[in-house]
Design a protein around this nucleic acid. Structure first.
Length: 276
DNA sequence: GTCCAGGTGAGTG
DNA sequence: CACTCACATGGA
């Protein structure tokens, strides 16, 4: 277990941000996270002090990048136009939101599942998929001393090997075939997710949309949350409402190079305040 | 029971 | 090009 002083890190808001589905609040100020096949816990001591159940080395080499801790967000927080009271309010409301650097395959499968589902339902479905396809792991929590059972996010091979009747219990509905199809394309190396990092954003989106079941919205989420493309804006039902109601249907051009992060401020506010 | 959710692909005009 | 429609299922 290590202690870290981190400024502008809001794990509670991140866990509700709709970009990560396996960061869970366990109890007051205690969160669990499954990435990279491992389970770790994060305890918030106060606004800028945290405990992590991992080594200092793992924190520095993996988590700093994952949580995007080496990026200074102060520039983005100042982007709101002077007369844009709404965006100012959104930024204040979720001022320590970050755009994470998550695994492309996990984002691909997670956001295929996400279509026409609530965030709560997405989480349930993903957890079932992990439980059905992936290997069971057990560890003892460093914080609670309780036994923890967890399942890493499955690989494409593990999903393909999973029996149909098990996959059918994951609540995937019509998305099941999309997921199997995506796993086949990856297994056959028809699309290599790690090779897409070098592409321009528009080419990246184009390539992601080769997966059946991945349209412009899901491709945009993957581009933003796995490939860190701040110039990409996933437009879902919430963002549609924001653009129509607050911006007369048009995004201010000044925001376009950073619309990914701005979109996340909008989304967080609109969803948690149930903007109608 | 009804309605909605971080949408997409196929079909039609 | 734009527009409509079916699509499974959980959660409120």
């Amino acid at each position: 277990m290590i202690k870290k002083k981190i400024k502008n890190f809001d794990i509670q808001t991140l866990s509700e941000s709709g970009q990560i589905f396996r960061l869970n609040k366990i109890s007051d100020n205690l969160f669990s996270l499954i990435i990279d096949g491992i389970y770790l816990e994060i305890k918030k001591i106060d606004d800028s002090n945290f405990l992590f159940s991992c080594s200092n080395d793992y924190f520095n080499t993996k988590l700093v990048h994952f949580f995007d801790l080496d990026t200074d967000y102060s520039f983005y927080k100042k982007l709101a136009n002077k007369n844009d009271i709404f965006l100012q309010k959104c930024i204040k409301y979720g001022e320590n939101i970050k755009i994470l650097n998550q695994d492309p395959f996990e984002m691909l499968i997670s956001f295929i599942i996400s279509q026409r589902k609530s965030i709560k339902a997405i989480r349930t479905s993903i957890e079932r998929l992990c439980k059905m396809c992936s290997k069971k792991h057990e560890i003892i929590s460093e914080f609670t001393n309780k036994k923890i059972i967890y399942y890493p996010f499955p690989t494409e091979n593990e999903i393909l090997k999973c029996k149909n009747e098990l996959l059918n219990t994951c609540g995937l509905g019509y998305r099941k075939e999309y997921i199997l199809n995506a796993c086949r394309l990856i297994k056959e190396k028809r699309i290599i997710l790690n090779d897409l990092f070098s592409l321009q954003s528009n080419e990246l989106i184009e390539n992601l949309m080769k997966f059946k079941g991945v349209g412009i919205k899901v491709a945009s989420c993957i581009a933003l949350f796995a490939y860190h493309r701040f110039d990409i804006c996933p437009i879902d039902v919430w963002i549609k409402r924001v653009i129509e109601q607050k911006y007369n249907g048009k995004i201010p051009t000044k925001y376009l190079p950073y619309i990914g992060i701005i979109q996340q401020y909008w989304f967080n506010y609109a969803r948690l305040e149930k903007l109608k």
